[in-house]
């Protein structure tokens, strides 16, 4: 009985955590001269990937139902563009704009969720159309690169440093450096905790697992599969909009090419974190580590300084491939046991 509890999914999660630790430790040893081992490096990974973390949480929920959402990257680009154009050109209130972005996210998710849940179109097709729609709409809003500088509230939020009470160190010049995080990290971590609790303790959370595990039996149990799917996509797009605001707080600009390939990072984070592509199995904690691995790879490539940035893309794709193969091998073993 106890043996059975350590299932292949737990093994996948352990592999992920071990991989992160090994990767980070290797980075600390190789790049210790460049300050990789400071706490702030780790916090910077969190700061840079706060948006991705929100998106990965939404992606995990969608993938639990057996679907996928590849529109997230373009939706973030659209959000950032709307925020920056809204503040710089239309001189709108930052809070009103944020609310508008969230509402757009919900509407976006409603349309996608309706097509997937009620019209039974393949999620990939719908969200791919969503991806091109989002990217195109970004260009419709504005084709220039717009950076935010005039909105005082937003700039203050973006520059706000939240110091941590521990981990202070003295730099080589003798200045005490207090490690800090930014507001986007706080938002992302709150999202992470809320989604974790939701998946574990609420009816909707359990429904997601049931729908992904076996759609037919979920229907027979009396679950409203269509509605659950619709809600999952609305949640994903909503979280993606929150992620978009976090992303915008980091980049402080909007451009058509922004967040290109982010869907890939979000999917690979979820997959690396042990979420099965077939649905029904997964956890946001795993996705959290997936995001950290993603961030570590890009930080390592950046710290090296000599490598082209496309290396981090290739490394993430290779990792995704590795974990997909691992998953399918586990699935084959499981099938042969049955």
């Amino acid at each position: 009985m106890k043996n059975k509890k350590i299932s292949s999914n737990t093994i996948l999660l352990f592999i992920t955590i071990a991989l992160f630790v090994v990767m980070y430790a290797a980075g600390c040893i190789v790049y210790s001269a460049k300050g990789f081992s400071h706490l702030q490096t780790f916090l910077n990974i969190l700061i840079n990937n706060a948006g991705l973390l929100c998106v990965a949480c939404g992606m995990t929920c969608v993938m639990l139902t057996g679907g996928i959402d590849i529109s997230v990257g373009s939706l973030i680009a659209m959000d950032c563009m709307l925020l920056s154009v809204g503040m710089e050109r239309w001189h709108m209130n930052a809070i009103a704009l944020c609310v508008l972005v969230l509402v757009i996210g919900i509407v976006f998710g409603l349309v996608q969720g309706f097509c997937i849940g009620y019209l039974e179109i393949q999620p990939f097709i719908v969200t791919m159309a969503g991806m091109f729609f989002g990217r195109g709409m970004t260009a419709v809003i504005c084709t220039d690169q717009v950076s935010i500088s005039s909105n005082k509230l937003f700039v203050a939020l973006a520059n706000m440093k939240i110091p941590l009470p521990f981990g202070a160190y003295t730099s080589r010049r003798g200045i005490v450096q207090v490690p800090y995080i930014r507001i986007s990290v706080v938002i992302a971590l709150v999202v992470l905790v809320v989604i974790f609790l939701m998946l574990r303790y609420t009816k909707f959370g359990r429904n997601l697992y049931a729908v992904g595990g076996n759609e037919t039996s979920a229907t027979m149990m009396g679950l409203n599969v269509k509605k659950t799917k619709l809600k999952a996509y609305v949640l994903s797009s909503f979280l993606c909009s929150i992620g978009g605001i976090c992303y915008c707080l980091n980049t402080m600009s909007g451009s058509v090419q922004q967040a290109k390939g982010l869907e890939m990072n979000a999917i690979s984070s979820a997959v690396i974190g042990g979420t099965l592509l077939t649905g029904g199995v997964g956890n946001v904690i795993g996705s959290f580590f997936g995001v950290l691995i993603n961030g570590t790879i890009s930080t390592l490539v950046k710290t090296n300084g000599k490598l082209l940035s496309s290396w981090s893309n290739i490394a993430v794709a290779a990792l995704l491939c590795f974990f997909i193969v691992l998953q399918s091998i586990f699935a084959k073993i499981k099938n042969s046991k049955n």
Partner: peptide
Amino acid sequence: LNVQPMVATLILFSAARAIGLLLCN
């Protein structure tokens, strides 16, 4: 390996362009 087609091709969707950039320096 029975991977969903779109997820399997997603790997090259992102990697192929990056490899192309490497090839062309």
